[in-house]
Simulated assay, not measured.
Amino acid sequence: MEFSKKVRTFDAFPKVDAQHQVRSTRGGFSTLLTILCGLLIFWVEVGGYVGGYVDHQFSVDKNLNSQLTINLDLIVNMPCEFVHTNVMDITDDKFLAGELLNYAGIHWFLPLGFNINNVNDKHSTPDLDEIMQESFRAEYLSQGLKVDEGAPACHIFGSIPVNQVKGDFHITAKGLGYRDRHHVSKEALNFSHVINEFSFGEFYPFIDNPLDQTGKVTDEKFIAYKYYTQVVPTEYQRLGITIDTNQYSLTESHIVYPTSHNGNPTGVPGIFFKYDFEPIKLKIIEKRIPFFQFVARLATILGGIMVLAGYAYRLYEKLLSILFGKKYVNRDTEKLSGGLLDSERKKKEGEKEDGRTY
Results as ranks from 00 to 15, higher is better:
V46H: 08
L128C: 08
T251P: 07
F82T: 01
L128K: 11
N63Q: 08
G310D: 04
M306F: 04
K216G: 07
Y248W: 03
I280V: 15
P290H: 01
V16P: 04
D168W: 07
A224V: 00
H84S: 07
N120M: 05
D92S: 12
T214L: 14
S185R: 09
F198Y: 15
I195N: 00
F13S: 09
C154R: 04
P205M: 04
I241G: 00
L176Q: 02
G263K: 02
K226Q: 13
L302Y: 07
H107K: 14
Y316H: 15
P205E: 12
V76D: 01
K335M: 11
P14C: 11
N65K: 11
V7F: 04
G113Y: 03
F3W: 12
M88F: 12
I207S: 02
Q237G: 00
K15A: 04
G201D: 00
P210W: 13
F10W: 14
G113S: 12
A188F: 06
C37R: 00
H183F: 02
G105S: 13
L145E: 08
Q143N: 08
P79G: 14
T31D: 13
E187Q: 06
V16I: 05
V162K: 00
I243A: 08
F206I: 14
I243M: 02
K122P: 00
K318D: 07
L323I: 12
I116Y: 15
N63F: 12
F291M: 12
Y328F: 14
I271R: 08
K62L: 04
I75V: 13
Y228T: 02
I116K: 04
N330E: 14
L72M: 04
I255L: 13
F82Q: 07
E353F: 15
I271D: 07
A188P: 00
I284K: 07
H107T: 10
L112H: 10
P205Y: 08
H182Y: 10
G150T: 11
G355F: 08
G113V: 05
L250D: 02
L336K: 02
T214A: 09
L336H: 14
E349I: 06
S135A: 15
N65H: 12
L176I: 06
K166F: 01
K352Q: 07
S249R: 01
L112P: 02
